[in-house]
Design a protein around this nucleic acid. Structure first.
Lengths: 231, 231
DNA sequence: TTGCATTTTTGACATCGGTCAACGTCGGGG
DNA sequence: CCCCGACGTTGACCGATGTCAAAAATGCAA
């Protein structure tokens, strides 16, 4: 029995749509790997040696300047594809934010397999186009929104993304959730400093828009206010 | 004779790699269209009705907030593909920056054709992955660079992109070029105001890093200094 | 439980870039 | 050739956000 049979993202990841024989041969190429929170999987500017599907957990994609400034340029959730196929180097580092489980492939093997399986390439194309859309809307946030708009947008996005990954049914955005980010990571995602993030969180709490039961927990009390703030 | 035979981007656009018969059928689906500077081709949030290859000219991809703030989220040069295949709505508006010539297809026709031609989908995938890389490195600029770093990075990128599209040989980055952007558009690209852009240009001129013979012309006098400033 | 390292919050202050307003310059059309 | 409107530059000022420092909270481990 291939491990794909028990894979929880089997029907959402790019492997969906492959027939049994294809799945067996893809399965033979890849292997499961556990990554602990904080552990890197791919390094920026390194040769692109591996690609992967996220099975469980959340990972960040980052780029850094020489002097150590960091920008989170993407976040990968279960069923997302990570790594840079068909390219020599990867343009971002990938680091686990939570303990995670991924299904990794050598890039060369994956490239070859993908080129022989148009349906897989199509899935990857759809995913990449959707990711590009998301990335572009994040550019608007980074370039044109102020701190409170950024935080509001971020919380709304979190409440949607985290609902999707925890519930199988479409139960709508989560009212309460646990952030997979530290304050510093929120800052790196929004192009702010940790102090500004902290002050904006405090302000939302004081204004009764959210509750913050613990460092990572968020409860949205007034979604309408958040929507208005997000602009 | 199909118009593809005389297409100047024939060997660089996603159509490269198609055989003669495929090219004829693609050609029958599409049509040439001229777009004058400032003219929109695709509207944000509209149904995605058409996609296109850029033959000549430069176009901007933008997203806007309700209150009129604009962020340029991409720039399309000759041989680039624009529009949102395999999706219901397009996440960005496309507007010509210069007079341009494009090869447009109905999205439905294109989607169908693409699904039947894996080689074309593969080209589109490679292009989309490369665009995602570029977009992510622009996120670092928007989120973490200051005004002078943004301007320096922008000028270096222009000198590379504009060299590519004007010279067939790889002559390296252009020392002198004509910006396809107004000052306001540069601001919209970098997440700045027009005043800050203007002041930074003036500073670079006063520091002897660039010459600005006219509004749109730029000559890079000291590339090393720009590289250092870009961070 | 206590102690300690880490993360987060808070405060005081500095500064970069935005805002508003005036002026200058360019270039196309009459 | 000149005028006019659009575009760009410059200056004065302001405020949002960054910086630096210290205190507080958290949570892990002994």
């Amino acid at each position: 029995m291939s491990s794909c049979d028990t894979c929880v993202v089997r029907n959402r990841a790019i492997c969906s749509g492959l027939d049994d024989a294809e799945l067996v041969s893809l399965n033979n190429m890849g292997r499961r790997r556990n990554v602990t929170a904080g552990e890197p999987l791919i390094w920026e500017d390194d040769d692109s040696l591996l690609v992967a599907n996220v099975i469980e957990g959340v990972l960040k994609l980052t780029t850094s300047t020489e002097d150590g400034r960091e920008q989170i340029v993407g976040v990968a959730y279960p069923s997302d594809f990570i790594g840079r196929p068909f390219g020599q180097t990867s343009s971002a580092s990938v680091v686990a934010l939570t303990d995670a489980r991924v299904c990794v492939f050598s890039r060369n093997d994956f490239d070859r397999f993908a080129r022989e399986h148009p349906e897989l390439e199509h899935k990857l194309l759809e995913r990449t186009l959707a990711e590009l859309d998301r990335t572009r809307s994040w550019m608007m946030l980074l370039g044109r929104k102020n701190a409170s708009e950024k935080i509001a947008t971020f919380l709304l996005e979190m409440s949607e993304r985290l609902a999707d990954s925890t519930c199988t049914a479409a139960t709508g955005p989560a009212k309460r959730f646990s952030l997979p980010f530290s304050r510093q990571q929120v800052a790196d995602l929004l192009g702010l400093t940790i102090e500004t993030v902290s002050r904006q969180f405090t302000k939302l709490k004081n204004d009764g828009v959210v509750e913050l039961p613990s460092r990572r927990e968020v409860e949205i009390v007034n979604r309408g206010a958040l929507l208005a703030l997000a602009g």
